[in-house]
Structures are given as C-alpha cells and as structure tokens.
C-alpha cells in the first residue's frame, strides 16, 4: 500500500485509562491527536522538533515526545498525559510540591516536567539534586531558572520531606 501523508488510517489507544478510537491522517502526530481530537491540551507544543520537552507523555510506560511520534505509530498503546496519572501518589506529591514551591510560572513546560519527574522517581526514589537536574535537562523552562523545579521534585521524592 502506498501512503500519502494525507491518507487516513484508524487508530485506537488507551489514554489516561480510557479506550479511544479514531481515524487520523497518517501524518498527524500523537501530540496533535491528543490535543485536537481528545482535547488533552496539557500536551503543549513548544517546538515540534523534539527539543523542548513540553509535549512529553508516557507511552506503554516509556517517556516520549508526543511531537516525534505519529498517532498511528502509537496504535494499541497505553498513553498517559499530564492530565492523567489519576490515583498515582507520586504524581499527587509532585503536583502539590510544584504548586507550593512555585516551581512553575507560565505553566507551559509544567506537564512535560511532571511526566519526566514522575519517570525519574520511578527509577530513583531518592535522586540527588544533580540527578534531578540531569533528568529534566531535556525540558526547557524559560521562567523559573529551574531551581524551584529541582526543589519541588526533591521534596516530592522519598528523600524529601513530603508525606
């Protein structure tokens, strides 16, 4: 089969615990599909080049840039966006610490940061500040200067003082 970029294909995903099905042009990115068709607008597009990290989501447990994945490539996958992670205590702690530490200003990078931080805490429950800085270095924040984000992730980790 030859595929034109505009050819439509069916895609079915599980997104934030719900099963979804739709028909998308094959060139539609996962980010575009999540935002435009599913209304999951916390997936932000800051560069569409895979550099800024704002569109980061979890696909089958792995952190990915939703701007670099086509929706049809994610066929059958389990996707979690920043709106998701419901009932996840670590994500709850992260959200709380981001808010109380003012670890975000404009909020555009925040969803991607949270997903990256959640992934870090899954791998390293007590990360050092250096490890936190390394883990979020694929994510651009232009507002905070990063320190408050590092503080918030540290506080939300098991090494931190979070409940």
């Amino acid at each position: 089969m030859t595929l034109d970029a505009r050819t439509d294909m069916p895609v079915s995903l599980t997104v934030n615990g719900r099963r979804t099905a739709g028909i998308v042009p094959v060139r539609q990115t996962l980010a575009g599909y999540l935002r435009e068709e599913l209304g999951l607008t916390a997936v932000h597009l800051g560069c569409e080049q895979g550099s800024c990290g704002a569109c980061t989501v979890r696909v089958d447990g792995e952190v990915m840039r939703a701007c670099l994945v086509l929706a049809v490539q994610a066929e059958g996958c389990v996707v979690e966006t920043p709106e998701g992670f419901s009932g996840d205590p670590a994500m709850d702690r992260l959200r709380e610490r981001f808010a109380t530490r003012n670890a975000l200003q404009c909020g555009f990078c925040t969803g991607g940061m949270l997903v990256a931080a959640r992934d870090l805490l899954a791998r390293e429950p007590r990360p050092s500040r250096h490890a936190i800085r390394e883990a979020i270095s694929g994510h651009v924040c232009r507002c905070t200067g990063y320190e408050a984000i590092v503080d918030a992730i540290e506080a939300a980790s098991h090494g931190g003082t979070a409940p």
Binding site: R35, E36, L40, T41, A42, H44, L45, T81, P82, E83, L94, R95, E96, F98, A99, T100, R101, N102, A103, L104, G107, F108, T110, G111, L114
Partner: peptide, 20 residues
C-alpha cells in the same frame, strides 16, 4: 503560593491554542 499554579500542575492551563 499562587492559585494558578495548582491549575497548571493539574494540567488545566488554558492557552490560546487550547481554544478551538
């Protein structure tokens, strides 16, 4: 802390491109 920070941390920001 800012009230808006909780909204953003919950993934509920509303930027121009989110309005359709």
């Amino acid at each position: 802390p800012r009230a808006a920070a909780r909204r953003h941390a919950a993934g509920r920001g509303r930027f121009v491109d989110d309005i359709a």
